[in-house]
Design a protein around this nucleic acid. Structure first.
Lengths: 226, 226
DNA sequence: TCAAAAGTGTTAAGTTTACACCCATGA
DNA sequence: TCATGGGTGTAAACTTAACACTTTTGA
């Protein structure tokens, strides 16, 4: 069928590039890897993968992420395609850009050595291959919008988290400070974030209450919007 | 270079699909064309085009739009790529979806016959090829978000427009009614929308003041946010 | 003269922001 | 005992929403 109807049309190399975010040292960080093959060997790059023949584009990203982080079931969102003519100087390659959110506690730091990888704070990114610096900017904007609209940012925190952790995370995402009392009010009103009876003693002597995201309550919230 | 480094990777057919919106009869409308070639000949489809070898993806969309509307310089925004395995039953085709906004006054209705095209109100769309109905839904959401964030919706109005026209447009985009007095207040405060001394007498006996978008004032607004 | 769309302000409700002190605890 | 992060309430500013009548004019 393809031969019959479409043989006159050009075909293209397709890659996915993924901006993997985590929250670390009170900052957003992005996972970069040193390219281990030509061209551009040795340059910092977003985790990237060529799309295979019998593979959805989403799956390409998941495959690349599993390879670089050891994790499955990562939250991903496609942002957009970068399809200009000379974005890659060596060949015509169309890239489909995603971002991913991971909980840094699940990332095995030994992978850094094995994969020649490193987490960079978003404010201290090196120059990357081709148009990847632009990709990160676009990804941050989309991620910021999405986390303000839906509670997906929680994927960068452990399942149990304190309000302070969430506060710092939101400040890092929005890149501005928020009043502590007003922030706590917002969290307490988001009734799909529930207080547990557990206490985190790791960050203060007094201890801080641990909260968790309740998926069921969130679905209920989505349906009824209150 | 491509041969050297990338020959092992698969290549893909790439198309663009574009949801072309206009504002007509107080409703959002989408331009569909009847497919004139196999496969799926005779089915309603979004304007679509295969990406050519030496052509950016953006340019592919512009080429398809020029062919179907006779217009250049159309506002377009890429939404996302649809890259699942079986979205097109005849071949593996990756689609990059855009939306476009056009002023229906610039569209020559004779093109409908020539291209087997038709404007459909978004609430009365026929069943389209493959995943195109989903594409329209996704495009509407993005377009709604964008028009609420930036004054791009004005591209669906003539250069001179009345507040009533803008009011109806915004109601169509947001799919809900707005209070007339509150709406007028918002427009009067958006100082990049300026009143002209021209009067439109076509829609009422009394006549309505014509307004226009001032690009210079808008750029100033963007810089200073007031 | 009347139908039809244009135009016009005020008040209440709700949301967002600003702000400062006490608490509990381990070192 | 004190340094550290955790926890708490109120009032002002601002934004959004609700609401109804008068004006103009061509048919």
């Amino acid at each position: 069928m393809e031969q019959q109807y479409y043989k006159e049309y050009s075909k293209f190399l397709l890659v996915t590039d993924c901006v993997v975010f985590c929250f670390k040292d009170n900052q957003l960080n992005v996972l970069l890897v040193k390219k281990d093959s030509e061209p551009s060997k040795g340059e910092w790059s977003l985790p990237t993968a060529f799309v295979n023949e019998n593979e959805s584009v989403d799956n390409t990203v998941r495959r690349a992420l599993a390879a670089k982080t050891g994790l499955e079931d990562i939250f991903i969102e496609q942002v957009r395609c970068f399809g200009d003519l000379n974005r890659d100087p060596y060949a015509r390659i169309i890239s489909i850009m995603y971002y991913a959110l991971i909980n840094i506690q699940l990332y095995d730091e030994k992978l850094n050595k094995r994969n020649d990888a490193r987490w960079f704070p978003v404010k201290e990114l090196p120059v990357m291959m081709y148009d990847q610096n632009e990709m990160v900017e676009v990804a941050i904007k989309r991620m910021r919008y999405r986390t303000m609209e839906k509670p997906v940012g929680l994927r960068m925190l452990p399942p149990l988290f304190t309000i302070s952790q969430l506060h710092k995370l939101v400040e890092a995402i929005e890149d501005k400070l928020r009043d502590k009392r007003n922030f706590r009010k917002v969290v307490e009103e988001a009734y799909y974030i529930e207080k547990t009876d557990k206490i985190d003693k790791s960050s203060s002597k007094r201890g801080a209450a641990l909260y968790r995201f309740n998926q069921r309550l969130y679905q209920h919230y989505l349906k009824h919007k209150l």
